Amino acid sequence: MYRFSNTVIGFLNLLTLLASIPLIGGGLWMAKSSSTCESFLQMPLLVMGFVILVLSLLGFIGACFNVAWALWVYLTAMILIIATLLSFTIFGFVVTNGGGGVPVPTRIYKEYRLSDYSPWLRNRIRDPMNWRRIRGCILNSNTCAKLASWTPLDYLERDMSPIQSGCCKPPTSCDYASGASTMLAQDPDCFKWNNAAGQLCYECDSCKAGVLEDVKRDWHKLSVLNVVVLVFLIGIYSIGCCALRNTKRSESDYPYGENRMSKVRPRWDFYWWRWWHDRREQLY
């Protein structure tokens, strides 16, 4: 039973090692996304994936060398990882709640308002250092350059990504042909728009809202992966607890170093007693 439990431990660690690969891959995909240019949610996911990877490697080595305390360390660390990943997944759902965009009359695309997103996300995106880095990333991605060849008809018939809608054009409601009295009543982003390729609407609240909308969409995709990994880890943890119970039962069945063959001795003692009993009957 002890050898079987060690085999189970090694197999479980191999499975958790494989489970860490989707987490790391998903985090790398989101970190390298040319649309969101934001990494404050996916970086913890990368850290979690690498922690599970290292833990699985250590547990697998411990099981192969029959290290008895490896299962205790493995299960203790695994319950902490499950709790952390569960908390992080719930946190991601909470902070990415809201948004979704507002339909624009006679247009296919939507426009996005910064006030629709959670306060935590708004504080992150409004931080000057964070926004400077994100703004540079959007410029390098040439996202707005794709709209340079659009005709007025394209703006009526074609869809846009959240960043294109918020950063590459002024709000649709802006009216630059009216008088000053009409201009004062317009969206503040209308005054931040500039035709220069390096400025456009990159300082607009709509641009920041577009970035948050992309963060929300990408994070919701990864949340599905997080839930699958959580169910997988919980199942492995349950099997690991059964292996631990079997190991403890094996040790209690054969205390003080007694091996399994010692349980067979009463059968051989019985045959020896029958032989001695028959000999005594023949002598007397």
Rank of each mutant, 00 (worst) to 15 (best):
S161G: 07
W150E: 00
N142A: 13
P171Y: 05
K169Q: 09
T172F: 07
G166A: 10
L147G: 03
V211L: 01
K248N: 10
P162A: 01
V228H: 00
N142Q: 13
V211A: 04
K216A: 04
M160S: 03
H220D: 00
C144A: 01
R158P: 02
E213Y: 01
A145Q: 13
T143E: 15
C207L: 11
A148P: 03
T182N: 10
Y176W: 05
T172Q: 06
K169W: 06
C144P: 09
K248T: 13
C241Q: 14
E258P: 00
A197C: 00
A185W: 14
K216V: 06
C241N: 10
N142F: 11
I236K: 00
L156H: 02
K169D: 02
P188K: 01
A209E: 07
W150R: 02
R158E: 02
K208G: 02
P255Y: 13
C207G: 04
A243W: 08
S250M: 12
W219S: 12
G257T: 14
N142C: 09
D205E: 11
D253S: 11
K146A: 13
A197M: 09
T247F: 15
F191D: 02
L200D: 01
A145N: 13
S161Q: 03
L153V: 12
H220N: 09
R245Y: 14
C174M: 08
Y202N: 05
N194L: 12
I236G: 06
P170F: 05
K221G: 04
G179E: 07
C201L: 14
